[in-house]
């Protein structure tokens, strides 16, 4: 039973309420679903799943939402669609946000710096995933052109090697803020 205590309140600016993050997560999932379930009444299913996964701490619901999006993309989207780039970024974002919300109670806050840290991590992975998606589109369009495919693969491998070969900055010490 809820008893009338006074909750703890952060006394600082630059915090985003978790409900905003939950709404954003559900919205991204619904928008992605709207693209692949275009014109179908069954869109209600991923919408409900996406909204429930953003609120309830269930890894099953998160998995269901992501699988509904992936399978619907494979079934409904035409091959070579430029939406692939959006989907690669969107699915990754939804996955990361679901992972974060999975561990958290319903109410709370997240700092802007923490969101930036998440965004940075997301961008690092997208730096490899997006070229892979571009290469897939290239292979789809020019599958019979071997030089184009080889050139694309070589460019991707070079890009990945450059990313991996970069020296990591020193770990931050306490008190350092970006």
């Amino acid at each position: 039973m809820r008893r009338g205590g006074t909750p703890a309140v952060p006394d600082r600016s630059g915090l985003v309420p978790l409900w905003a993050l939950r709404c954003a997560t559900a919205l991204i999932a619904v928008l992605l679903g709207a693209v692949v379930w275009n014109g179908s009444a069954w869109i209600i299913l991923p919408v409900v799943a996406a909204a429930a996964a953003a609120v309830l701490p269930s890894i099953g619901l998160a998995a269901l939402t992501l699988l509904l999006l992936v399978v619907a993309y494979a079934v409904n989207m035409p091959a070579g669609s430029p939406w692939l780039l959006v989907f690669v970024a969107g699915l990754h974002t939804v996955f990361i946000l679901y992972l974060l919300l999975l561990h958290l109670p319903l109410r709370g806050w997240i700092s802007g710096a923490a969101l930036r840290e998440l965004g940075g991590s997301l961008l690092r992975i997208q730096a490899v995933a997006q070229p892979v998606a571009v290469l897939a589109l290239l292979v789809d369009d020019a599958g019979s052109s071997l030089p184009a495919v080889v050139a694309g693969v070589a460019a991707l491998v070079g890009w990945c090697l450059w990313l991996v070969g970069r020296r990591d900055p020193d770990p931050k010490t306490p008190g350092q803020h970006s």
């Binding site: 009338g4 952060p10 109670p105 700092s111 710096a113 923490a114 350092q176 803020h177």
Partner: peptide, 22 residues
């Protein structure tokens, strides 16, 4: 806090945040 449901505060690992409680 006593009598309240739990809440989360997500920070970067080197961040500080003051909190007001009763």
């Amino acid at each position: 806090t006593p009598g309240c449901p739990p809440e989360a505060l997500v920070l970067r690992s080197d961040e500080e945040c003051p909190v007001l409680v009763d």
